[in-house]
Design a binder for these strands. Structure first.
Lengths: 196, 196
DNA sequence: ACCTGAACACCGTTCAAGT
DNA sequence: ACCTGAACACCGTTCAAGT
């Protein structure tokens, strides 16, 4: 009696995403080609389509991986209960992450095609610790805009730093610290400033 | 006597950059291909190399054009002399610009190859009005970090808005206003917050 | 059931040949 | 002096053919 033995996979989705992350880290999104990823996992580019619907679909999985990674680190960082201290810790983690994986960080705030855009829960999960600290500083009513202000500032600052927009001199680490202090003070005081 | 009549250019650098800007505006950086630009100015892609060293070189010219454009609008916006009012005007102009030309705005804070990176003066010129207002709010000593805080926040906020990171609900325009008020208050008060 | 190789449409870029 | 068309190396993606 003859037995059909289907070829077992020579790779896996997990291995492919990990390879994608490795390639992204080293050379950015442009370097994340199907051929390069195929090389890394040991199959031809065309074989990747058995595991992933398209390059955009692979990018999506990689971005979600980056979000999950950052989220876990943020979660572990804000633990003292003192809002100002926790916020500074979150800022430090964000900055470390951005320096460690600039292309990955960049991707978190990049416009992507529909197909490559991460599940909306990815962003929400990663920003939960920031929302918690923002609520502690601004109160429940202003927690959301406060968190948005903090996240926007951090994302913009680190992006500018990595792109090299800070060439007017001055200490960049000091400017980062200045920003956090200004935000803590400002978010506490918002109601004191007239609305127009 | 025979006279050599060299073929006159069928296009020009200016026309090419304008076409590049048009294509960028409509479809983003991925759509900015030599073929597409060639179509628009009426020559083959390979002929563009008589006017531009490479696609990266063309991208650079286009980015510098976007910076110049934004800088001119910012310059025209901060005119009342009242720092808080001027800052809100600058914020409004930035947000309008980002909505009007999301891909162009995005490019201002995108990591580009060396060859595609704009002249450092481009960024400095565009941010001059912000620096002026920051100095009026924070004083000369803190003008630079204050300007960086403001720019970083605006860049990050608008980027997140355009990418669609604000899906938790809430009014985005209100959050933008919240951010400006918080920053004005915070930058004025920075010295009041202990350094650690 | 997975993998390969050929094929297709599309890139950027170079260059000999046309005018 | 500028433009064209062919050519090359590289993409993403599809698919018949192999195992």
């Amino acid at each position: 009696m003859e037995v059909r033995v289907p070829t077992p996979s020579r790779t896996s989705l997990e291995e492919i995403v990990t390879a994608g992350r490795t390639v992204l880290r080293a050379g950015g999104l442009d370097a994340l080609t199907m051929q390069r990823v195929g090389d890394l996992v040991g199959v031809r580019a065309s074989s990747l389509y058995k595991h992933v619907p398209s390059r955009a679909g692979l990018v999506r999985l990689v971005v979600e991986d980056v979000f999950a990674d950052l989220g876990a680190r943020l979660d572990a960082a804000a633990t003292t209960g003192d809002p100002a201290t926790d916020l500074r810790a979150l800022g430090r983690v964000l900055r470390e992450f951005a320096h460690e994986d600039r292309y990955g960080f960049d991707l978190l705030f990049s416009p992507l095609s529909q197909e490559a855009s991460p599940d909306s829960g990815s962003f929400a999960a990663a920003s939960a610790p920031i929302l918690r600290v923002a609520e502690a500083i601004a109160g429940p009513d202003d927690a959301l805009p406060a968190a948005r202000t903090l996240t926007a500032w951090a994302a913009g600052f680190l992006r500018m730093e990595l792109v090299g927009d800070f060439h007017l001199g001055g200490d960049v680490g000091e400017a980062f610290d200045f920003g956090i202090r200004a935000l803590v003070a400002g978010i506490r005081d918002v109601r004191a400033v007239p609305r127009e």
